[in-house]
Amino acid sequence: MTVDDNLIAKLSKLSSLEIDEAKKENLKSELADIINFVENLNEIDVSSIEATFNTVEGGTPLREDVAKQDLELSSHIMSNAPKSEDGYFVVPKIIE
């Protein structure tokens, strides 16, 4: 994957970040380095290596999934939202 001005413009639009013209060349270089590093990792053959550890001994602990409604908490959360309507968050449209 090549990092060019088109990719930087697309990333800028998707992230809603304004990228300074003076920093674009440095950003392209850093992104290219990151992509090359990840591509190098993809070339390593680990098919013969067995997993040596697990973060949770005995597997993933499960809990009962119980739905509950707390109207006071919901209204508190909605009061902090920049925009809400009928108990839902209102966000800008991002897909054209």
Score class of each variant (00 low, 15 high):
Glu25Val: 05
Glu85Asn: 05
Met1Ser: 13
Asn80Tyr: 08
Thr55Met: 13
Glu18Lys: 03
Lys83Met: 08
Lys68His: 03
Ala9Cys: 01
Pro61Ile: 13
Glu43Arg: 15
Ile44Arg: 14
Asp4Arg: 02
Ile35Trp: 04
Val3Ser: 07
Ala81Glu: 04
Gly59His: 06
Ser79Met: 10
Asn6Ala: 15
Glu50Lys: 15
Leu11Asn: 03
Pro61Ala: 09
Gly59Asn: 05
Leu73Gly: 01
Ile95Tyr: 12
Asp86Asn: 10
Asp65Phe: 15
Ser15Ala: 13
Ser75Leu: 12
Met1Leu: 09
Asn80Lys: 08
Ser79Leu: 04
Leu7Asn: 06
Asp86Pro: 00
Asn6Ser: 14
Leu7Ala: 08
Leu14Asp: 07
His76Ala: 11
Leu41Gln: 09
Leu17Ile: 03
Met1Glu: 06
Glu57Ala: 15
Ser29Thr: 05
Lys13Trp: 01
Gly58Ala: 14
Lys28Ala: 05
Glu57Val: 14
Asp5Thr: 05
Asn54Val: 15
Val91His: 03
Lys10Thr: 05
Glu21Ser: 09
Ala9Ser: 07
Ala67Glu: 07
Ser74Pro: 00
Gly87Phe: 04
Leu73Gln: 06
Asn54Ile: 06
Thr2Met: 08
Glu50Arg: 07
Ala67Ser: 08
Ile77Gly: 07
Ile77Thr: 03
Glu30Leu: 07
Leu27His: 04
Tyr88Asn: 05
Ile35Ser: 00
Glu18Cys: 00
Asn26Leu: 15
Asp33Ser: 14
Glu72Phe: 03
Val3Gly: 10
Ser75Trp: 02
Ser74Ile: 10
Ser75His: 13
Val46Asn: 11
Met78Ile: 09
Arg63Leu: 11
Ile44Val: 15
Lys10Pro: 00
Glu85Cys: 01
Leu41Ala: 11
Ile77Arg: 04
Ser16Pro: 00
Val90Ala: 11
Lys28Tyr: 05
Val66Lys: 14
